[in-house]
Design a protein around this nucleic acid. Structure first.
Lengths: 343, 343
DNA sequence: CTCCGCACGTGTTACGTATAACGCCGCTGA
DNA sequence: TCAGCGGCGTTATACGTAACACGTGCGGAG
């Protein structure tokens, strides 16, 4: 055989048919559970028994070929080592499991290989695509293929997406700004992610709008930083040293940046939250390891993946495209407090 | 059509053949790059041009069916939200991409669904399996199917695995114990993972052996904890309050547990590392967010995945099974120091 | 008694690819 | 002159499944 492993050939539906004394077509009907009114209960049981005894498992390649479609969906995320996207994936995988849909993952590696084709890497014919807008370079390869596409974390109404699912990013930033303003903060810096993505653009805009609307408040600077602790550290150092009077609150686009901000504050001899309040974004595990624990805003990562998957499955059933915005939640912890009394 | 999406049919190799004025077989030869000596260069170019113009992409289901094997591998990990396994996956995915092999992921969700079949969830015929031993319940379903299997983080020589790839766990724990002993520590507690897995068993044994071999040193207790910050917090509270004199060093099976230990120390008014030294395991991102930064041992997670994938591909080529042990590295940082002078 | 319709199955086909088996054509050596 | 051969290509087939289009009895209505 061409298979050098010498692995024993798996039984086919024909083998099951022979053993059960019926035709292959009947096996297909029974195991596909569409035998009602077509096959007598006795034979149904016989077929099921035969399949069980042979440990029959359908050949999925053959099924996909025959049906011209597969029940496999591609999910595209920037990187799974980012806890947020790992959780998005977990949510999507849960729904995929419940709905008996296969899920294939494509994550753009740090070093992008433009030659790689996400579809080829799937090694399987796909039914649809669930993609995060942060995986921009991978998405370029998706264009043109008329596969149903649901975008996560992406501007609604752009592209040929069958749907869009977002957390309520604007509301999230409103909660953060409102929380800090209520505590009495007036001098802010924004530690922005150095990523060209819709979601971060919304955060920047919403923060600026909220602060502009508060009397006496102002955004001293926006420091862009790569999405790492080290990046947050450097950006926060700049933010905390470049202005007098110092900002009393650092609003970070991500918990990782916030962790870096803690380190910067410590290096400068500033206490959190007494001297500087810090807020994060995403509610990563990291946040409760920090001392004090990080005030952040919880984005429903699992729900994002799960809802996106459900939207995609709906699109595959031909239902009209739907978009969803998921609620977010402020998680006040120890890293925010009223600013110290004036200078 | 049965496809309710009305998606335009993708071109097949026959379409390419028609356009290039050759037979379908020739297209297969050319695009499969085994035309040398069988097709003239002129036609090769014509076929390639036609394929390009039609944006032809081979139907992978048909190919798998024809070949009776696929170039798709299943990877089984406990949970991707665990950064360590996300990195293992990233390494495996990198090699899979380079070798043009598809990678399908199965991760056992927190709530295990025993009815789910990892193979079915793959929705694709598989060539081999790369599995972490921590995903024990998922592995049970793999038995019997004669697929080549490479185990990660698993006891060598057990089961029908085609190979085993491990980080040098014993050496890792030796490094940690040696580091702390050299600093002068004698009273230890082990914060052990509450997971029944070979890798954690090795850590416990090796730590006990090393301490038994050092004069005056001793393991006061082993506190088992679920692999979370909260679990580490509770276990460390027990470890730090149950013994007088107090242990001066807490050896944690995981950086998450170590993060919990920091919190326990803080609650008890103990300083790290002056009053208690803490070590972690895995070198997660978390470690440098902690204050002081965590002394830990770096396990080569990406390399583990990459090497495992290479071993599996070798097994698929029929090469004899090979096992590998990967080097580890102590990362001394701020959470360890000589113990305070006597009581 | 005939004929329709239902209950219960089966034969056959197609999906798109890779490859074994088979030409054809022009050249070469005997 | 012709068998033999190597370079080029094609025809035909099989992979395992799902589903269409047919039977074949049998009971009841006309």
């Amino acid at each position: 055989m061409s298979d050098s492993t010498g692995r024993p050939d798996r039984p086919t539906s024909r083998d099951v048919a022979r053993r059960a004394g019926v035709s292959q077509a009947t096996v297909s009907l029974v195991l596909g559970d569409r035998w009602r009114g077509r096959v007598s209960p006795a034979r149904v049981e016989a077929v099921r028994a035969a399949a069980r005894e042979l440990a029959y498992r359908p050949n999925l390649a053959a099924r996909s070929l025959r049906l011209g479609r597969s029940r496999t969906v591609l999910i595209v995320v920037p990187a799974l080592t980012n806890e947020f996207f790992a959780r998005v994936h977990a949510g999507a995988a849960r729904v995929a499991g419940e709905e008996d849909v296969g899920l294939v993952l494509y994550h753009s590696p740090e070093v992008v290989l433009p030659a790689r084709d996400p579809f080829a890497s799937a090694s399987v014919s796909l039914a649809g695509v669930l993609a995060s807008s942060m995986a921009a370079e991978a998405l370029a390869a998706l264009s043109g293929d008329g596969l149903p596409l649901v975008m996560l974390d992406s501007e609604p109404g752009r592209g040929a997406a069958a749907g869009t699912v977002n957390p309520d990013i604007a509301e999230a930033m409103r909660l953060v700004a409102g929380h800090l303003l209520a505590l009495g903060h007036r001098r802010f810096c924004h530690l922005a992610a150095d990523v060209d993505s819709w979601t971060f653009a919304v955060r920047a805009r919403e923060l600026a709008d909220r602060l502009a609307g508060a009397p006496g408040a102002g955004l001293l600077a926006t420091e862009r930083a790569p999405l790492t602790i080290e990046g947050g550290l450097r950006a926060a150092e700049r933010a905390l040293t470049a202005h007098t009077p110092r900002p009393t609150a650092l609003v970070c686009d991500d918990d990782l940046l916030a962790a870096g901000a803690y380190k910067a504050a410590r290096r400068l001899g500033l206490r959190v939250p007494e001297d500087v309040s810090i807020t994060g974004f995403d509610d990563l595990t990291l946040g409760i390891a920090l001392e004090p624990e990080l005030t952040t805003v919880r984005l429903p990562a699992e729900e994002l993946g799960a809802t996106g998957m459900r939207a995609l499955l709906a699109a595959l059933r031909g239902e009209p495209c739907a978009s969803a915005v998921l609620p977010v939640e402020l998680v006040p912890r120890g890293s925010t407090a009223p600013p110290a009394a004036g200078p």
